[in-house]
Amino acid sequence: MTLKRKDLLTIRELEPEEIHQILDTADSMKEIGTREIKKVPALRGKTVINLFYEASTRTRTSFEIAGKWLSADVINIASTVSSMTKGESLLDTGKTLQAMRPDVVIIRHPVPGAPKLLADRLQAAIINAGDGAHEHPTQALLDLFTIRERLGRLEGLRVAIVGDISHSRVARSNIQAMRKTGIEVRVAGPATLLPRYPEQLGVQVTTDLEAAIADADVIMMLRIQRERQGPTLLPSLREYSRLFGLNVERLKKAKEGVLIMHPGPLNRGVEISPEVADGPYSLILDQVTNGLAIRMALLYLLTGGHPAER
């Protein structure tokens, strides 16, 4: 049993069995993080490069720790696109890195499809750590893992995703992942931030937050990215918070015990109130912990020899 691919670029390309295999492997990996000595030798001698063209603390750190717990050598390369455009192209950077024989290159990039550009041309396994508004597959996998861990299943659950769906790679990957594992997804947000062709993503959309969360088992709040929403998309964060923010009052309209998720970082008081974020049904910190297990699982699964494919 292995992933049927050299790279992990999108959730869209994964078979449901592959998703379950990744989740099962992560389930086994999670124990390592509970040990006093958090290290296993599985990836000894393997080189993992974190190539980040966007600022990121949690995702980069998560991959770095995951790699180190598996004994891989992890190297971080942080670069801003503005400095890159002056200098070396992504492809040239990729080729330079390839010459150093990394086993895995993890890339985050503001442009959709950038990981594929590398994947098509490099021997190393490429993991997409977020490409523009396209996909963020490891986030979706850790979200599924967290839901499955808490509720014991995925099939038949209802999840509401709330916020800027249009520009969100987290939403895109999660919608795919959830549909493939039998979760019913509905999304809610202001009309200007909903995708124009939601049927392509396979979800129902609404601008009515309370309708979206009414019978949900899980509510996933997305970060409102102040830097991405220009003044033509949202009048103000205050109004956004009033219409789409999740607070204790609004939570009363949802099912008792509904679970709350957020990919982070939080805008407290904008899309989510502190009482909800820190409340008893919040899975926000579980998501972070589980991110390590998912990323260990992927690093492990993608570093196998693939005599038939390579």
Partner: peptide, 13 residues
């Protein structure tokens, strides 16, 4: 083109 494909790929339409 702003349509189904750009929606899916996350490309600005």
């Amino acid at each position: 083109h702003e349509g189904r494909v750009s929606t899916e790929l996350g490309l600005k339409g």
